[in-house]
């Protein structure tokens, strides 16, 4: 069995625009990898191609034994991959608890779902206080907690996060990042983190990949990238 997530020479186009132009990257199991870059660099497209919402023109994506290009979006979760959309991915018409339960429904196993629910409430107490409220009533930070918790309800081995810091207070972003690190230590969770906020992402990540106009312009240990002043100025904005 091969391990980790491997993306090989991925090309995704929107009409004439090559949003991903031959992207390759390796994510080892149990690591946190940050995907960085400016708006329009192809970060979100990369996530959407990995989870199957967008089909590439060419290239390969494998996770463990799964060929993700042959997997339907609805079945990606069965390969152990959970997706955390931005805070807007909360289904506001449902209650907090319904949102959470949805994350574990694919298992068709009520007992496991109940257990995961208790874990999530322990991990994110504000959600427990609001469990029967409409998700519409949550603040931005609580919504982000909810989408992370909902993804964890699936008990994934790989978590894909899309801009978890967008529009959030730094303190809340830090809390979420700390939770991710804890999960990596405790359960060997693998995380791919797409971020515009490079500074905070590099502080939690083990590895990092910098995209620019659909191409990988740098990759390596997060600490090395953070120390590279030229790279920071050119692509990361700090």
């Amino acid at each position: 069995m091969s391990s980790g997530l491997s993306v090989d020479n991925l090309v995704t186009t929107y009409g004439a625009v090559r949003a991903l132009d031959g992207v390759s990257l390796q994510v080892q199991d149990g690591t946190i990898t940050a995907v960085l870059g400016a708006n329009g660099a192809g970060k979100t497209t990369l996530l959407r191609t990995i989870n199957g919402l967008v089909r590439p023109v060419s290239g390969q994506i494998r996770y463990g034994d799964h060929d993700l290009l042959k997997t339907r979006v609805e079945d990606v979760v069965q390969a152990g991959i959970a997706h955390v959309p931005e805070g807007r991915g909360v289904i506001t018409e449902l209650t907090v608890e319904e949102n959470l339960r949805l994350g574990a429904l694919w298992r068709n196993d009520r007992a496991t779902s109940d257990e995961s629910l208790r874990e999530m409430y322990a991990m994110f107490p504000p959600l427990a206080e609001r469990r029967l409220q409409s998700a519409d009533t949550l603040s931005g930070g609580e919504r982000q907690m909810l989408v992370v918790a909902r993804a964890l309800m699936a008990r994934p081995s790989l978590l894909l996060l899309d801009e978890p810091s967008l529009g959030l207070a730094p303190r809340i972003t830090a809390q979420i990042m700390a939770t991710l690190r804890r999960l990596r230590e405790a359960q060997g969770l693998t995380v791919v983190l797409v971020e515009q906020n490079a500074r905070s992402a590099l502080s939690v990540a083990d590895e990092a990949v910098v995209l620019n106009l659909g191409k990988v312009v740098a990759q390596g240990p997060a600490a090395d990238l953070a120390a590279d002043e030229k790279l920071r100025h050119a692509y990361l904005g700090f």
């Binding site: 919402l53 990606v76 979760v77 997706h83 289904i91 949805l102 429904l105 694919w106 699936a154």
Partner: peptide, 19 residues
């Protein structure tokens, strides 16, 4: 729950494994 979720937000529902 699946029916309501997919009516309100089909894309997010698919990512959560809802057909």
């Amino acid at each position: 729950l699946r029916m309501r979720a997919s009516a309100f937000n089909p894309e997010v529902s698919r990512l959560l494994g809802v057909h």
